[in-house]
Design a binder for these strands. Structure first.
Lengths: 339, 339
DNA sequence: TTCCGAAATCGTAACGTTACGATTGATAGA
DNA sequence: TCTATCAATCGTAACGTTACGATTTCGGAA
């Protein structure tokens, strides 16, 4: 018996002596169909390996059951972009669970973002869009809102518009990080920032300042580092700090490379990390688990962020009148003993 | 004037007083249409922002202009999975350039791989599939070949079947790596392998052995490390090697963590890396650029691998009789001075 | 027996596109 | 003038699905 590779509704209908309509309804448990018929139809459909054709359905209903995530890709430096991997994981897994497929649309910095968005939707490529790498007063937001295209943003843009987003509470994380150091008796706390990514630097600085002044401590500009830190640059910077008359006993690193440099500097000064010198680091890579020093890691569950984005987008597609998801995700700050 | 958001062929046809057929043909430069008509049609279509509807076309032609990459996702350890990021970048960019969209389909280890493949194709979700994480005698290959479903594999499976693949020449890279160390005067060369990923370990060992015996050197099992190396484990292992009566002067690391451990061990022994002790490392992260020691990095251009996969897949879809792409990609082994 | 209403099933049309054969109109040769 | 030929355009059908209204069937009440 030849197995038909792509059975359609009509084949199943004729095999059962039913109409296409009834089969279609039976497969989605329509109340008009006799329960016994539903059973028979489903049995045959399963046996034949029937899968509803995506495009036939999309053409009829106007819905594609597909989501598209627009991710800027830049070859430059994958280590600092590593959080994208769990994000993609969360997006794809959650999309599947909701019955959607997920396309990734890579953009290069030169392209016109709106042109892409527009083509994508007109071609019927997606029911909804995830946009990332928000800038302040992002023009894509009014553009998409104006066209009633379902979307959700990873990150917030300024402005008063009401739209769906999921964002990471970077200010809160910095606040928590400094508080952890304060609990450990640190009074002079250094903060390592980046120059390029202004947004992050600004909000981290805000969290730092809030925690410091909250504890009645003043902010020493000497202890704030603005630089495009490589491992080596970080080592130099931390070494200089440790040479100060009143050296810091706590440090909030910018990223993994900053951490490696700081560890190196501390070792040269014969400081015991976790006792004489406390370090907090953002750890997207789980690298902390593999290091030997006790550290304070702050992690953001990017898989969960990806899942939430899909959740919020699907809700908007399926129930357009529901309020927009506006979620600010806390990070987890935890002590990694590395005994 | 109200701008219609999703103009279709019929609207353009009536606006021009032409038939839908002629407009359709004009837009793809059909030879039956008068050149002037083609111009007129294109002008109106552009002005209206016409984009052909994906699903209408797919339903008619059976082709979806979509590719799907099946990527296993495992939350465990993103650092060792980081090469996936440039791979995804290459896949998505090349897909766009060929006029295809790219969906990512995440699988978890528990799922039946064939079940997924079959559903995907039956539903009309993709014209072709990229499969990854090949195992020896991979059952997906005969499955897909038997159903004439276009696919390409990242990696090779054993067996005599003829199918399209792109693979990285890990054996050649190991061979090259050892030769670089030999050129620098190393005679005792250590090789750090992993236990888990047998495939890689086996082929790297082969390249190592070929280079060593080629230089008339014997292989000392003491210098071969099989372990699930963390940074700490690597530091311990390298320290033990350096304590041997005849310590190695060259090392091929398993990965970035192995490198960090090795650097640490060398520093403790007061060895100068790049002079007393030479290290080769696989560098997917460009981490080497940020370190201070002179290193030999072997890199594989994963963006190019992703592009080649798409290239090979698209060729198979569009010209089914063309020979399968069977590409083995060389890595680049280069000295990073880090002056 | 006849009729009513509900339950179950059926038929038609439409989504937007393209393939294919049919039709129109013009030109040129007999 | 008639016809063959060719270029240009048109009309119809079909891809697989679902929405919606029409139709059939059957049990029970009048």
């Amino acid at each position: 018996m030849a197995v038909n590779l792509r059975p359609n509704l009509r084949q199943i209908a004729t095999e059962l002596g039913l109409s296409v309509t009834t089969v279609s309804r039976a497969l989605k448990d329509g109340p008009e169909v006799h329960p016994d018929t539903i059973k028979r139809v489903k049995a045959v459909a399963n046996a034949a390996g029937y899968v509803p054709n995506f495009h036939g359905r999309a053409l009829r209903t106007g819905l594609t059951q597909a989501l598209t995530a627009i991710l800027p890709m830049e070859t430059r430096d994958y280590l600092s972009d590593i959080a994208k991997l769990p994000l993609i994981e969360g997006l794809t897994l959650a999309a599947r669970e909701h019955g959607y497929s997920l396309s990734i649309y890579s953009t290069t910095p030169e392209e016109d973002p709106q042109e892409n968005l527009s083509r994508l939707i007109h071609a019927g490529g997606a029911d909804g869009i995830v946009i990332t790498r928000m800038v302040s007063e992002d023009s894509r937001i009014p553009f998409l809102l104006g066209r009633s295209i379902p979307f959700i943003a990873f990150g917030r843009s300024g402005g008063a518009l009401d739209y769906a987003f999921v964002d990471v509470d970077n200010e809160g994380i910095a606040f928590q990080a400094v508080n952890m150091l304060l609990e450990r008796g640190c009074r002079r706390i250094a903060l390592q920032l980046l120059t390029r990514e202004d947004q992050y630097s600004t909000v981290r600085m805000a969290g730092y300042a809030k925690a410091m002044t909250g504890a009645g401590l003043s902010i020493d500009p000497q202890l704030i580092g603005h630089e495009d830190f490589t491992m080596e640059a970080s080592e130099r910077w931390v070494t200089r700090l440790l040479d100060l008359p009143e050296p810091p006993t706590g440090l909030v690193c910018a990223n993994e490379l900053g951490l490696l440099g700081a560890l190196s500097a501390a070792r040269r000064k014969s400081l015991t990390v976790g006792r004489d010198f406390h370090i907090v680091v953002r750890d997207s890579t789980h690298m902390c688990r593999y290091l030997s020093a006790p550290l304070i890691a702050h992690t953001v569950d990017m898989v969960a962020v990806g899942r939430s984005l899909v959740e919020g987008l699907v809700r908007q597609i399926e129930r357009p009148d529901a309020p927009h998801m506006q979620l600010v995700v806390d990070g987890k700050v935890e002590f990694i003993a590395n005994a």
